[in-house]
């Protein structure tokens, strides 16, 4: 039985701009949680700062709206202290790839079992449309005084280079595909990254819904637009590292990097890379602390009434003179 989708929605007024891609993303998250039937109290949405940061308030699970660029740090702390939780972190492209880029890379190295979505619209919306790290060099979106002088970062390639073990791209206006990608990301054992192309109708007048649909690129014969977005799975692309061998891993990493460089006329969506042969952080720590998953920090008893019940006598006797 599918849980009631309405249970995952809050009554908080949503103040995103009309037509904003964010609506599709929040719907897809709610649909994914409902379809997976994750109890509301066992899920937590962590978010950064900016328009995307408000996401956690619209979803009726635990919701933690953190600091600019720091969402992954809060989310990892919570997940590691209570590994029973399903954690989805969400943030903007400026949040995750600008101010938070160091945490992005470090999180990839850890591979904590959770999901991270970047709402990628190439602008800083809430501060009135400055260029974000994913805006292409030379573009001048409408509120920029001059064209962008920085090169853009490639989020998919950065995620792969950093060690994320599930790397995918969705599109905010394809909610069904996005929902499926979120489910796959949540079910993935390890850190999953989802780059979500999310047109900002107010400040990004270049990478618009019409642009992604190819409305500026009409096929002369069929008189139909040639959509930029296409799905990797429709091309027979296999993102999965099936066996734990360096050759297999190299092959899958390389093809994902090549795919990640497609942009101007053809933009792939779907899963670029998936590797469950790399142990998640929790598993690595379980080798050090054997009962970690049964008795994680959040579940440990530390007192009986107000009496401390930890035995420190061994620590002290080693210091005795």
């Amino acid at each position: 039985m599918v849980s009631n989708l309405a249970d995952y929605k809050t009554e908080v007024h949503n103040d995103w701009c009309p037509g904003c891609g964010d609506f599709g993303i929040v719907n897809a998250i709610q649909m994914a949680l409902a379809e997976m039937e994750i109890p509301r109290n066992k899920a937590a949405i962590f978010s950064g700062i900016g328009c995307s940061g408000k996401t956690s308030h619209f979803i009726n699970t635990y919701g933690v709206h953190t600091l600019h660029g720091r969402v992954l740090t809060f989310a990892q702390g919570a997940k590691l202290a209570n590994p029973e939780m399903t954690i989805v972190a969400a943030g903007g492209d400026g949040d995750g790839l600008g101010i938070g880029a160091g945490h992005f890379v470090a999180a990839g190295r850890r591979n904590v079992d959770m999901t991270y979505l970047i709402f990628n619209n190439a602008v800083y919306g809430l501060t009135k449309g400055q260029a974000s790290p994913t805006l292409k060099l030379g573009l001048k979106t409408k509120s920029l005084p001059e064209p962008n002088v920085n090169q853009s970062v490639n989020p998919i390639a950065l995620a792969i280079a950093s060690g994320f073990t599930f790397v995918a791209r969705g599109y905010a206006y394809d909610v069904r595909q996005l929902k499926d990608l979120i489910i796959a990301a949540v079910r993935h054992k390890g850190l999953a990254f989802l780059d979500v192309l999310q047109p900002c109708p107010t400040y990004n007048d270049i990478n618009t819904r019409d642009w992604f649909a190819g409305m500026d690129n009409i096929d002369e014969i069929t008189k139909k637009p040639r959509p930029r977005i296409y799905k990797l799975e429709d091309t027979g692309y296999d993102p999965v590292v099936h066996i734990d061998s360096p050759e297999e891993e190299n092959e899958k990493l390389t093809q994902a990097l090549i795919k990640s460089n497609e942009w101007d006329t053809k933009i792939p969506t779907g899963i670029f890379y998936r590797n469950e042969t790399t142990a998640p952080y929790e598993e690595r720590m379980s080798e050090r602390i054997p009962n970690y998953l049964e008795n994680p920090p959040a579940k440990q008893e530390i007192s009986s009434g107000s009496r401390a019940i930890t035995n420190i006598s061994k620590l002290l006797s080693s210091l005795e003179v």
Binding site: F74, G77, A78, A81, H103
Partner: peptide
């Protein structure tokens, strides 16, 4: 950040 997340 991690400490706050854990404390939650």
């Amino acid at each position: 950040g991690m400490v706050i997340g854990a404390a939650l």
